[in-house]
Amino acid sequence: MQCSSIGIIGLGLIGGSIGKSLLKNEASHRVLGWDVNEDAIDFALASGAVTHACEPEKMAGEAELLILAVPPSQMELLSEKVAPFVGKRLKAVTDTASTKSAIVKQLSAIWKEKYVGLHPMAGKERAGIDNSSADLFEGAAWAAVPSALSSKEAAEIATDLVCALHSVPITLTPEEHDAIVAVTSHLPMFLATALVTLAAQRASENPKLPKFAAGGFRDTTRVASCQPWLISEVWETNEGFIKEALKDFINILSEMSSKDSKSLAEMATEAKRARESLLAGRGEGK
């Protein structure tokens, strides 16, 4: 890393895992951290996610790289609060939000050339610093989303950060990013939520149903256990692309409902091939 002092605001699953990974991989020996929850700060210090607790305003004056790992709805207000305290050492600012079009516009207006957006394609359905892991990002793809104002130095630092976490940076425009994750990340949350809602309705009619909620149901609905605010915030900041994905998905379901068994088998065969191809493209096995 080009930065010897890194600050993380927001010590949840993602922020905590970034800190743990940086320290484990010896990419930095000084990781400053802060969270609105004092217990999270204590846990981060005790578990080796950060080396020092530091208020955001002070952090802005000491850090060379500032990482905003808070919910998307808090990014702009936090930035406006912290930006006036920036010191000469600060080289780059990034965020970890799962939508980018609105966030990049907001934050680049505040941080100017120092800002580059990031989004890790890794996580867990269980949030919080106590679920963080130094290995969370191993081999994961990270979207690197510069703005029109981003400096070459800031872009290089963002890439260095991703590589220091043993991850793979992929540069996208904000619109590219939001269109892609609407299908690969956001739509699964909506589908899982809908399936659980249906199962709960049927379980109220037949209490034996939960006994049959086995592996397929558990795997398919895993992301329905995410933080409730997450699904509302991705909708608020990526509604257009999510609506488009939902519409296309509903059309596919409608098409399936009109097929005969032979046609469904052909469709399932093609879907099996497609899944294996998609995962191979990500670098995963079957």
Rank of each mutant, 00 (worst) to 15 (best):
L23Y: 11
N238K: 02
A60N: 01
F241V: 00
F212I: 10
E266F: 15
I252G: 10
I242E: 05
E233G: 01
L198P: 06
V145Y: 04
D219S: 02
Q74S: 10
A122G: 01
M189K: 00
G128F: 08
K112L: 14
T184I: 15
L13G: 13
T220Q: 06
C163K: 15
G117F: 07
L264N: 07
A203P: 15
K58C: 11
Y115C: 03
L32C: 05
E62G: 02
S132K: 04
V31G: 03
A245T: 03
K247C: 08
P207V: 10
I67T: 00
T221G: 01
H186M: 02
P174Q: 01
M1C: 10
E80C: 12
K286V: 08
I41S: 08
T220N: 04
V183H: 12
T197C: 10
T94Q: 03
P188Q: 04
R282P: 07
F190L: 04
L65A: 00
E113Y: 03
L118R: 01
A203E: 12
W229P: 05
G285N: 04
A158S: 04
T173K: 02
L136G: 03
K243R: 15
I41M: 10
C226G: 09
G61T: 09
E153Y: 09
S133G: 03
E26T: 11
E276M: 13
L11I: 14
S133N: 06
A46H: 06
K262D: 14
S17Y: 02
S225P: 06
G117R: 03
E239K: 09
A182P: 01
N206Y: 09
L246K: 05
E62R: 00
L264Q: 09
K259S: 05
A154T: 05
A27E: 06
P84T: 00
G12R: 08
I170C: 07
P146N: 11
S258M: 07
